[in-house]
Computed example of a mutant assay.
Amino acid sequence: MSTPKLTASEKARVALLVARMAKRSIASETVYMRDLERKVERIIDGAQQRAEKNGKQP
């Protein structure tokens, strides 16, 4: 499954979450990041649903 087109808002939210993940990993390599990963997955899933609803394929 390829990544659907993201809106500017979705891109910004993903970038913020990735930055938070990087900050956490600097603190410790064994830190829990699954909560942030799930948020990114939800954003991508929402974009995928929107693309399917609009009939557009990435």
Rank of each mutant, 00 (worst) to 15 (best):
A51N: 09
E10K: 11
V31M: 13
S28N: 08
E37M: 10
Y32V: 06
I44K: 00
D45C: 04
Q48T: 09
V18S: 06
Q57N: 05
E52S: 10
I44N: 02
G55T: 15
S9Q: 07
G46E: 09
P58G: 13
T7A: 05
E29Q: 08
K23R: 08
L36E: 07
V31N: 08
P58H: 04
T30N: 02
A27C: 02
M21P: 00
R34G: 01
V14L: 00
K23Q: 13
M1E: 04
Q57C: 07
S9N: 06
K56C: 06
K56H: 05
A8H: 10
E52D: 12
V14T: 09
S25P: 01
E10C: 04
R24D: 14
Y32E: 07
I26R: 03
L6G: 05
L36Q: 02
R20Q: 08
D45H: 05
I43A: 13
A15I: 01
Q48K: 06
Q48N: 08
E29G: 12
V14N: 00
R24E: 10
I26E: 03
L6I: 14
A22C: 07
P58K: 15
K56P: 07
L17G: 01
E10H: 03
K56T: 13
V31R: 03
E37K: 04
E41N: 09
D45W: 13
A51S: 11
T7H: 05
A15F: 12
R24C: 02
K5G: 08
Q49S: 07
R13L: 04
A27H: 03
K56D: 15
R20H: 11
K23E: 05
T30G: 01
S28I: 03
L36G: 02
S9F: 15
V18G: 00
Q57F: 15
Q48W: 05
Q49V: 11
A12F: 13
R20I: 11
K11V: 11
A27G: 02
E29A: 08
E37S: 06
E37N: 05
K5R: 04
R42V: 07
R20M: 11
E29I: 05
L36I: 14
K53D: 14
S2R: 07
L36N: 01
I44L: 14
